[in-house]
Every structure is written in C-alpha cells, then in structure tokens.
Amino acid sequence: MRIGVVTFPGSLDDRDAQRAVRLAGGEPVALWHGSHDLDGVEAIILPGGFSYGDYLRAGAIASLSPIMTEVVDAANKGMPVLGICNGFQMLAEARLIPGAHTRNAHQQFIRRDQRLRVENAATDWTTGFTQGQEITIPLKNADGRFIADDETIKRIEGEGQVAFRYVGVNPNGSFDDIAGVSNERGNVVGLMPHPEHATEPGFGPDTPAAMSSGVDGLTFFTSVIQKALVK
C-alpha cells in the first residue's frame, strides 16, 4: 500500500512517519505541501512538527496549503487520513474533524510516554486494536489541549468519534481526557500523541518487558494496510 506523508515547512516527524509506514510493510511516498499532486497514494499522513512556527494558530497556515485542497477532497471521498500532533491540529483547522486546540492548560511544552485507551477500534487506523485496549506511545506538544463546545463534545462522545482517551494523566487539559478523534465516517483520525515514535524495538517507550521496547504505535499503520488488503 502506498501511503503519502506530507512535508510542510516546519514538519519534524515526516521521516519518522515514512519509516513507520515502511516498518508496517507499506510503501511511504513523500508528498509536498506546495503541490496539488497526491501521486496516486491510497492513504495520507499529516505528520507532527511546528509548521510555520505555529504562527497564527498551530496548524492553521499549513491547513491552507495547496495540497490540503486535495487532502480534504480525498478525505471526504473516504481516503484514510491520519493527523499526528501538528497534523491533528491541521485536521481541526481544515474542519475535517470537530474541535480545536489551544495552548496546554499548564502553559508548558510536555514530553512523556503517555498511556491511552483505544475508545474506537473501528476506524481505518485502529482496527488492529481491541476496543478498550490500553497502549503507550510518546506525547510531545505545546498546543495539545483539545476543546470543543458542549454540544460537539456530547455528539462526538455519543457517535463514537472519540478514538483515544488519556489514561492516568491528562497531560494538557483536553476536554473529557480526549487524546484523539475521528470524523463520522472513521477514515480521518487525528491524535496528539505520536504512534510513529513507537514502531521499532529499541526506539519506543519503556515496557515492563524491556527498556525502549514499546511498539504500540505500529498497529496504526498495520491497521490501515490490513484494511486496504481486505477491501
């Protein structure tokens, strides 16, 4: 499966996302923010980083990039799209998912190995998990506080659009401990923590078994590949 990873000015984790796709058995395709060409990919990842220095609002200027016209169009037609951290913020700014992000409630940048609960194992990027499964992947952000109005929170909680929830600690003040959400269809998923940083033994979070051995993030990428094979 060919999975595109879009590089924006200020993207940091585009290469790690490409590597994660390769480790999962997919073929990563580098896409460029200034182009209108999706190069025939079958899924798209908007990676983490600080595009445009978080100017205006985190992810806001990137969400207006030329390639985002094609990303929004493809997403609305059902193509799987995963937004990680800054990519999550772009999805919100592009209105592909509900809600928005503000500065962490405690004002500080945070980096930690974060426990999450998979609240919806039926999205295109989570089918390899079991419902309610707890996973640990790294989190690192400054503007990670997910917020939405009461009505929207009620709706996404009711419709199963909350894909991931923080467990143990709410690291940024997100409403309802929400770590990740999906669109109604379940093909577009955004989350603050970084699955691509937990895909290779020796470079992931610590586990009870061994230091840096956590690879819970790999399942995001194998899920979307598996789903494409089944189709």
């Binding site: 609002r57 806001a60 207006l64 919100a92 928005a100 503000t102 917020i147």
Partner: peptide
C-alpha cells in the same frame, strides 16, 4: 475563516 477559528 483565516484570522480566527470560530471554535475558540
């Protein structure tokens, strides 16, 4: 549409 985000 650009200068503000109506959610926040």
């Amino acid at each position: 549409d650009v200068f503000s985000n109506s959610v926040i």
